[in-house]
Design a protein around this nucleic acid. Structure first.
Length: 596
RNA sequence: GGCCCCGUAGCUCAGCUGGAUAGAGCAACGGACUUCUAAUCCGUCGGUCGGAGGUUCGAAUCCUCCCGGGGUCGCCA
């Protein structure tokens, strides 16, 4: 049997009940292989153990028989029966049955659930965490906005996504570095410097005309002009541009980065590394990279064909220094130098990839806007060439966020430098709301963000819905502290009689709690933090449903003064639910609230 | 024209990398409050999964070709 092929046979995820069952299934298959029912070298790579969609099919289900039928040279149902026979011997499993085209459905015996719920309480914040990543070094680069202006809504989604993804990977056992690439080389920061210089002149009382085309007209640069006056007085006025430009540029970049970091902090985002593009130029890293690539035959001088479809009017063939990215899956080879001899942005990026690889990162994650989709293949080509195919480069593209206010689109004029900043959004609705809302869609689906709707306290608002579940649980515990004797509240977790959780809605909630580690692992593998948000909405929904059953049937209330043992079991379940809500929200970077 | 993403209920979207009769919310309709917070819950209605082929025990999911929407396309970052 191929070792580690079956899910759950590699790294075990603590208290992932599906992993535990997978382990049992694998043992059963091993036994059948020994008996000669299955070939000794059976390939179990496609065998899965998962929750069935329909509760009627049990709590756990496996497709083992259907996947292995061909290898066993036996009809699926017949093989399923043989596997089921082995599984029935396990005391943790009940109702083992063959169904449909050959699924094996089963339920988990009470001791199994007892262990799970006790473990959730014992593990606390660690429930759901795993060592799946095995400490692999992952670099997550996100935001990386040009230091030429404040962060706007467009950056917000990538910022939240990247941060939540980093949290997710961290909690699933990866060694994560959060990184921000500062584009502080090139024409844009020169334009920034000239814009700030104009504001400096303005602050000195000189009359400035309209900010010229190509420069940054935003009001936000005025304080920088004033600050320059405080520091340099009239000195910069007497200088030639080539003298003042580096001074003003460096000053402006520093100031903008202070502002950007401050805005990110307001959203609860901190990067461990801020990496400057300019250092790649100044340290000679780009030259070194190109030299190395030349030695490996990855670079040549040649001409590119004109773009198909609509050839640009000023097109003329030109010899260029090109990276053979087509050898690594790209559509066209990519230039590393501009016609003036300076390096392209891409050349710096290649050197940057080399730098990240040198630091030992095996996974390079790029969180980008959807408009950078065309850039991904060349990044991946560069990574493949430089890492020898050993490291992975994963790009996640975030689609646009459309702003609304009460159903009406919010108008923005980019040309006039008017845009809604990230800070404005955070200040108006709060960091928690922004963060949660940004993750209520898959990253590659466009997102509508309505200022009014996200402040509503209703079912429509997923942030509220999840927070409300947490607050209601907190409220139960406040009441319990009033109504129940102290010895009941302080009882030992190990003495909880979990089997007293008998209602179907309690079981639904219990199962959902049990799914959390599996969901987390899958979300991390897919680099999809939005799954955590969707899971939390489902968990909250299950909880609200149980809550309401207690209204219709007083016997289902959480606190039953006449039945201390059942009360204890129900409060135990609520503690487990509260714990999972907290753990999930922590990954999203959202604080749970105690009351609303 | 090339490449990338999307197309699932009237609307907004999930769908756990191939599983069983495709799911939520909103909207529409009908119910549940002397409350452990009704800021919630329950039920009903609603889908040729853009279209056509293919792969196999099995496809919304994988492959090919179309249709429609968005992004992007040598020296900007």
């Amino acid at each position: 049997m191929r070792a580690g092929a079956l899910q759950g046979e590699g790294r075990r995820i603590p208290m992932n009940l599906f992993d535990d069952v997978a382990h049992k299934v694998n043992a059963a298959l091993g036994a059948l292989a020994e008996e000669g029912v299955l070939p000794a070298a059976v390939d179990t790579a496609n065998v899965k153990v998962e929750p069935p969609r329909d509760e009627a099919h049990g709590e756990v289900s496996t497709n083992a028989a259907m996947v292995l039928a061909k290898q066993a040279k036996m009809p699926p149902c017949e093989l399923a029966e043989k596997i089921a026979e082995k599984l029935r011997a396990d005391a943790d499993l009940t109702d083992v049955a063959v169904a449909g085209p050959g699924f094996i459905n089963m339920r988990l015996a009470q001791p199994f659930w007892n262990r799970l719920l006790s473990a959730v309480l014992a593990l606390g914040d660690a429930y759901g965490c795993s060592d799946m990543g095995g400490g692999e070094k992952v670099n997550v680069e996100y935001v990386s906005a040009n230091p030429t202006g404040p962060l706007h809504v467009g950056h917000t989604r990538g910022a939240v996504f990247g941060d939540a993804l980093a949290n997710l990977l961290e909690e699933t056992g990866f060694d994560v570095t959060r990184e921000y690439y500062i584009n502080d080389a090139g024409a844009q920061v020169q334009a920034l410097a000239r814009s700030v210089y104009l504001r400096y002149c303005e602050a000195l009382g000189l009359k400035i005309e309209k900010i010229p085309e190509g420069l940054y007209p935003g009001e936000y640069l005025k304080p920088l002009g004033q600050a320059l006056v405080m520091e340099h007085h009239y000195a910069l006025l007497k200088m030639e541009e080539e003298q003042w430009l580096p001074i003003v540029r460096d000053f402006a970049i520093d100031m903008m980065m202070v502002m950007i970091r401050d805005d990110l902090a307001a959203l609860g985002i901190t990067h461990e590394v801020f990496f400057s593009e300019r250092t790649l130029h100044e340290s000679g890293a780009i030259e070194e990279t190109i030299r190395e690539m030349e030695q490996q035959g990855l670079i040549y001088t040649g001409q590119l064909p004109p773009p198909k479809g609509k050839p640009p009017e000023d097109w003329e063939p030109r010899d260029q220094l090109l990276f053979r990215s087509t050898d690594f899956g790209d559509d066209i080879d990519r230039p590393l130098k501009k016609s003036d001899g300076s390096y392209t942005y891409f050349a710096a990026d290649v050197a940057y990839i080399r730098e990240k690889l040198r630091r030992g990162h095996m996974q390079l994650v790029y969180v980008l806007g959807a408009d950078h989709g065309g850039y991904v293949k060349r990044l991946q080509a560069a990574n493949a060439a430089l890492s020898g195919g050993k490291a992975r480069l994963i790009a996640r593209l975030c689609q646009l966020v459309k702003l609304y206010r009460g159903g009406e689109p919010v108008k923005m004029s980019k040309r006039a430098g008017e845009f809604i900043t990230m800070r404005e959004v955070v200040d108006e609705v709060g960091a928690d709301v922004v963060r949660f809302m940004m993750l209520t869609r898959s990253n590659d689906a466009p997102l509508d963000f309505d200022f009014e709707k996200v402040k509503e306290q209703s079912r429509d608002n997923p942030v509220f819905y999840v927070q409300y579940a947490h607050a209601r649980i907190a409220s139960v515990f406040r009441n319990a502290a009033q109504e129940l004797p102290e010895n009941l509240l302080q009882a030992d977790d190990d003495s909880i009689r979990w089997e007293l959780l008998e209602d179907a809605a309690e079981h639904t909630l219990m199962r959902r709690v049990g799914e959390y580690p599996r969901m987390l692992a899958a979300a991390a593998r897919a680099h999809e933090p939005h799954r955590v948000a969707f899971y939390l909405m489902d968990l909250a929904g299950d909880f609200h449903a149980l809550w309401n059953k207690g209204k219709e049937n007083p016997q289902l209330r959480f606190i039953l003064p006449d039945d201390p043992e059942r009360t204890q079991a129900r409060l135990g379940l609520l503690r487990a639910v509260r714990q999972v809500l907290r753990n999930g929200l922590r990954i999203l970077g959202v604080a749970p609230v105690e009351e609303m």
